[in-house]
Design a protein around this nucleic acid. Structure first.
Lengths: 235, 235
DNA sequence: TGCTATTCCCGTACATAGTACGAGAATAGC
DNA sequence: GCTATTCTCGTACTATGTACGGGAATAGCA
């Protein structure tokens, strides 16, 4: 855990062994199982033992495919996070292409709810993520911006999507929990905020809480903010 | 670990005990020590044993101040993340105030490098963070936007800062490491990217890498992107 | 001045996590 | 078949979070 990660050894080594016992699984298969587990039960549920159990193999068998757990997480981020259904080439409509990219990223992160929180942990960029980056660079080519600037825009866009999906999911979970039981987390959080507002130290917060609850259409909110962001980012 | 967190019990309980043995420390003192440790050695270095050792107390003594480690992390996020030197009241210049807020947040996150990655883990909003939120709501009051919309803008701004600081720190660390030893991480990452570019599957990436390395003034880059973002977000 | 209830202190011990080690099983090439 | 090589995985060690419980300190009261 918390070890060093060598991008060259991770991504550049072709699997060459033609000798010895044949492996019963593959690195991708193990990574996919870990991703499925994270999707179902969250990232903390991804333990070496749990992944091995799902595959029906001994725990230590995983270590012939993956050097350690940190690396497995790195692989998960690339496998899940790079699974973007992107068009072969940009349409040429800059704003529309960027919007499309963000929409696809949002769908992806909603499918893998652990991803937004995991992204800041990433220590290197895998080949699948590079494919997405390559597409973004192509989309941004008409801007004439230098590579570094285009890269920053992509990074910012991804950060925005991650941040927004985090927010959406938190809202959603609060509702789910409070549905399950009245005295649950969502309600407790609300009672807490109401109590804080009642102290008088947070008058604007009190005001915001007193407003009629907004319709809260996450789709529309995302589209609106995304549009603003794109307008602002492009010269 | 990975337990439930009750915001009411966490933030609303005034420390009432006037009876029994007098505590030798305080919740804030323990949290501050944990923050100092995270600043120096990263969030994974924050273990209950390590924090206790720094305070010169037994490990289990911490549990009279904090119910569990997840809660301690929650406290750390509020203590470190809420330590924003904000003006008493907004100046009235909307764009300038937002920019100032973001600058202060950036300084804060550079001071606590573990914070950007920890923010998505936050499960409730502590009183110090509420103070920052209150300030942001005040700044955004002239927009006339409803509370929910103002909240989203603040969330987006914070996400942007976190994302950008993550990026800055990654760059910076790569440089530091490659200075320490030529065959170190930074160089390995670069060799890896160069190799990927060499495959021909990432032509734009190859082009970006071939460009002369930009001056890379993080300060200026942040200011420029921030300006664009603010322009885009305000009606 | 004790007595008692309450609170803090923390050594011990257990459960769970990652993973080093090494013996055994399977397989390709000779 | 023989051998080198690779995969498989039981055992065991370390690090971590934390339950438990006995003892120490303290405030209020008799």
């Amino acid at each position: 855990m918390s070890s060093e990660i060598d991008p060259e050894r991770l991504w550049l080594t072709a699997d060459q062994p033609r000798l010895g016992r044949r492996p019963r699984h593959s690195r991708d298969e193990i990574t996919a199982e870990a991703v499925a587990l994270a999707d179902a039960e969250g990232l903390p549920a991804v333990t070496m033992r749990a992944v091995a159990a799902r595959l029906g193999v001994g725990t230590m068998s995983l270590y012939s495919y993956v050097p350690d757990k940190d690396t497995l997480v790195e692989l998960m981020i690339d496998l899940a996070g790079g699974d973007l259904p992107l068009p072969a080439a940009p349409s040429g409509d800059l704003a529309a292409d960027l919007r499309g990219l963000a929409e696809v990223q949002r769908a992806l992160m909603r499918r893998h709810p652990w991803l937004p929180a995991a992204l800041p942990l990433r220590r290197t960029i895998g080949p699948r993520a590079l494919t997405a980056l390559e597409y973004a660079l192509a989309v941004l080519e008409p801007t004439g911006l230098p590579g570094a600037a285009r890269l920053e825009i992509f990074s910012l866009l991804t950060g925005f999507v991650a941040s927004h999906v985090s927010y959406e999911l938190a809202q959603q979970q609060a509702v789910e929990r409070s549905t399950r039981s009245a005295a649950e987390f969502g309600a407790a959080q609300f009672r807490y905020l109401a109590a804080m507002a009642g102290t008088g130290r947070y008058p604007r917060l009190a005001g915001a809480l007193a407003e009629p609850p907004a319709p809260a259409d996450p789709e529309a909110t995302f589209d609106r903010l995304l549009g603003r962001l794109i307008e602002g980012l492009l010269p």
